[in-house]
Design a protein around this nucleic acid. Structure first.
Length: 113
DNA sequence: TGATTGACGTTAT
DNA sequence: AATAACGCCAATC
């Protein structure tokens, strides 16, 4: 079955759904996994349109620096932090996380681990 | 149809 | 260290 994603959004959803619990992935990492290393921003756009009842672990997506985008300025950044804690991940009040510990490498391969 | 924006990232100053 | 500007491409105005 050729389950090739018809749209960028489908690919992103599939990649995010693959992130195991207790692991973190960056926007660029997801973009790279789906075959579009040049579109970290579009990944964020897709996640932004996700419903609150989505099954996707969107809260596991952080930026490459290892913290939640906008550090709380965003509408649901704080909510994302709460979810990460519920996953068993240590998160600072500002959204800082330890990528060195929770950083998950997709099927793409470890760039540095 | 063109211009602006954006849950980012990287490089330069 | 922090801030500014550029890049990248889809969605929105």
């Amino acid at each position: 079955m050729s389950g090739e994603p018809a749209s960028f959004r489908e690919a992103v959803c599939a990649a995010v759904a693959r992130v195991p619990r207790g692991a973190l992935a960056s926007y660029k990492q997801i973009a790279w996994m789906v075959g579009y290393p040049r579109r970290p921003r579009q990944v964020g756009m897709v996640l932004r349109g996700l419903p609150e009842d989505t099954d996707l672990p969107w809260h596991r997506i952080v930026n490459s620096l290892g913290y939640v985008p906008s550090r709380g300025r965003w509408w649901g950044a704080m909510r994302q932090i709460e979810r990460l804690r519920a996953e068993g991940i240590e998160v600072d009040d500002l959204g800082n996380v330890d990528l060195a510990r929770y950083g998950w490498n997709g099927d793409d391969g470890p760039p540095g681990f």
